[in-house]
Amino acid sequence: MSTPSIETASTAERIIDADTLRQWLADDVELAVLDIRPSDEVGYASPLVATNLPADRLAAEIDRFVPRKLVRTVLVDGGEGLAKSLAVRLADTSRNEVYVLSGGIPEWSRNGTEDLPTFDIPGRDFSLDIRDERDTPSVSAAELKTLKDQGADVVVIDTRTLPEFTAGHVPGAVGVPGAELLLRFADVVPSPDTHVVVSCAGLPRAIIGTQTLIDSGVPNQVSYLHDGTRAWKEENLELETGATAVYAPVDHAAREVAAQRVETITANDKFPRIDVQTAQAWAADPDRTTYLLDVRTPEEIAQSHLPGSITSEGGQLLGVSHRTIAVRGARVVLIDDLTGARAAVVSHWLQQRDFEIALLLYDFEAGA
């Protein structure tokens, strides 16, 4: 009888079946699930709602997504078997807890996806639960067009990233990514009489943005645009392109108003406040994964940031947290300036998805 090669033996040990993954998704041990299919194939439709890290980027970027080498990590491919060889290669880099889902996505979803457990809560499902629980108000694209045609005092705030906003938005909208809403609202909407309509491409970020403003106590009427820019196009209305109107630097008065609204929305929230030294100690802990996520704008982060932190726009965390936080059960440190408006918004909603969160508010101007 021939002796199995080292690669064959080690590969076999790393293959798990769907039942094992189900058990792992239900336990309390840290777990990363990486969908290694091409991004254009995954889109928004991964039945696992797992972190998409395509195979050709896996070796170069896995340390950013799974900082600790000893975290159980499951690679899921398209059924072609690519994950097996990648798991062996990662083992050569001291990642000895990397496993492969047998059969990949096709095997996982063979009997349908309706009752399958997922790695993260889909952003759409989460936002719809918020809408149904809070009765979040909305307007249709046709209703918004009528308001604009009548010259009503209405402003549309688009809560997507600026590149998404630039690609196409409701004419006249202002680009303010979701986590920036409280910080910049007083500058963008100075009048309490203005009807504010919050938009995104579809529903999740618009619903969460609308409810954020309502929960923070803004005096304005606030609604979300049902189905966002998608609905606008379905009404045969044209989108505007370019960075036509985006947020500006926050003035002192707007920052003071934002601080008051942070107090309102976080009145019942309880998150530990930590300092830089504690954050660094947590990040270096060999027994626990900690993400240091800077939720400010990319421009601010480029000017100054804390060593070891990762840029992670807060609005994206609200809708698609799994794209950044690949390890379930990890600690999440949200880094913001001293006003803390972005961190307040993100933590307010992520706590409802069972994330363990701490806040690090830092004086970046003084630090710089």
Rank of each mutant, 00 (worst) to 15 (best):
L75Y: 02
F165P: 00
W349S: 11
P38H: 09
I16Y: 04
S109H: 06
D63T: 10
G242S: 12
Q211L: 01
D40W: 03
P47T: 07
Q23T: 12
S85I: 05
L359S: 05
G209I: 07
D285P: 01
G104Q: 06
W349C: 10
T161F: 00
H252M: 08
S109T: 09
G319V: 10
D28G: 06
V100D: 01
L318M: 12
V257T: 10
P67T: 08
V320R: 14
A330K: 01
V76K: 02
V257N: 04
T266F: 05
I310C: 04
R22W: 02
P137E: 13
Q280E: 15
D92Y: 11
S109K: 12
A87N: 08
D92H: 13
R328Q: 11
L58N: 06
M1I: 04
K233A: 12
P67I: 12
S5I: 05
D275Y: 03
S10E: 13
L360M: 13
V345K: 00
V98N: 04
K148Q: 15
D40E: 11
I121C: 06
T241K: 14
A45W: 02
W108A: 02
T161S: 14
Y44N: 09
Q352W: 04
I36G: 08
E164P: 02
Q260F: 00
R288K: 15
R205K: 07
S140N: 09
N268D: 15
P307N: 13
P190G: 07
I265N: 01
E164G: 10
I214R: 10
L293K: 04
S321Y: 09
S85W: 00
L350P: 05
D77M: 08
E356M: 07
T118C: 09
A358I: 06
K148R: 14
S85K: 10
R205W: 03
A231D: 08
E61V: 01
P298L: 08
I130T: 11
A343F: 04
R64Q: 12
E97I: 00
I310F: 03
L225S: 12
E365Y: 01
I335K: 01
G228R: 10
E356P: 02
K145V: 06
R288E: 14
E356C: 01
V218A: 05
A173G: 09
I6F: 10
V333E: 08
L58S: 11
T146V: 11
A26R: 13
P54Q: 06
A245K: 13
G314C: 12
Q211T: 07
Y291I: 10
D287Q: 13
Q277I: 08
T297E: 11
F185I: 03
T297G: 12
G103Q: 09
D153P: 01
A9I: 00
H252A: 15
R131F: 07
V33C: 09
Q303E: 10
G367K: 14
W282L: 15
L225D: 11
D294P: 04
T161C: 00
P286A: 10
D354S: 15
E133T: 15
T118E: 11
E313I: 11
R273G: 05
L181M: 08
P298K: 11
E80Q: 14
P272T: 08
A368R: 14
Q303L: 05
